[in-house]
Amino acid sequence: MTSSAFPARTSGRRFHFLFNRAWQALWVLPLPAWLLLFFAVPLGLLVAISFWSVVNYRLTPDATLSAWRYVLGLDFLWASFWRSYGLSMASAVAISLLAFPASYAMAFVAAPRQRLILLGLAIAPFFTSYLVRIYSWQVFLTEGGVISSVIQAFGGKGESLLNTYFALFLGHATLALPVVLIMQTIALANVDRTGISAAANLGARPGAILFRIILPAARPGLTLGLLFAFLLSYAEFVSASYLGGGTFQTLPILVTDLVRAGQQWPRAAVVSLLMIASLLITAFVTVLWAYREKG
């Protein structure tokens, strides 16, 4: 491995070499092996299934493009693709903007000790009962729910806010905010303080420092936050169903419907692959932009 000019060695060296290799393999291999078997193979199977056919409601191995042709020819597929993509992008931008002041406060206003506690509290909800939190929002947003009661108390109409984009956005924010907060805060906290002081020393005012020093320096982290907000919103299907109330037919809902109603596995596979392709392209472009260097 290290050299091709290995002269003949004694058996001691040979044994030592094999021992090293085995010891190393013991640590290197387990995770990739598990991921190959239970992640790469299933995804590969999904690709294969997209070329299979359904005969008498039974999935049958085949080599046909019919599922691809069918799905790509659907008008409502493209409509829901662009709707999914556009809504998730809008949510990602809105979530990033919403999170920014908070991240700034954690990075620059809070003392280091407070920052750690706040970060802990910000990320904790990410791991806790997402479904129940969505249900809570339903209670808040529904007609006669918490928000409409408050609005009525102030003399408003107090209609249900469910099935609106605002409701869907709340769902996306519930999911993605913790991740965006973490990424933004770490990016901002790592901006070189000496650079900030140097800019001020050269005459930059607070506004210029924010826009010309802090934001450019934190760009990779801020952009990755945006990307993750998009990834999570794009894949999300519970709030689209229960907060958006089916007004927003998104791709994940389409996928589950195709399988649950009618065993249309190949078509569901095609939609899934389209989703993955669009995710990868978006991620690739975003990461390139995030780490683009000047000059």
Binding site: F39, L43, L46, A235, I276, L279
Partner: peptide, 10 residues
């Protein structure tokens, strides 16, 4: 990064 719906399906 892969949507859970797709992972679940696969």
């Amino acid at each position: 990064t892969v949507p859970l719906v797709i992972l679940g399906l696969a």
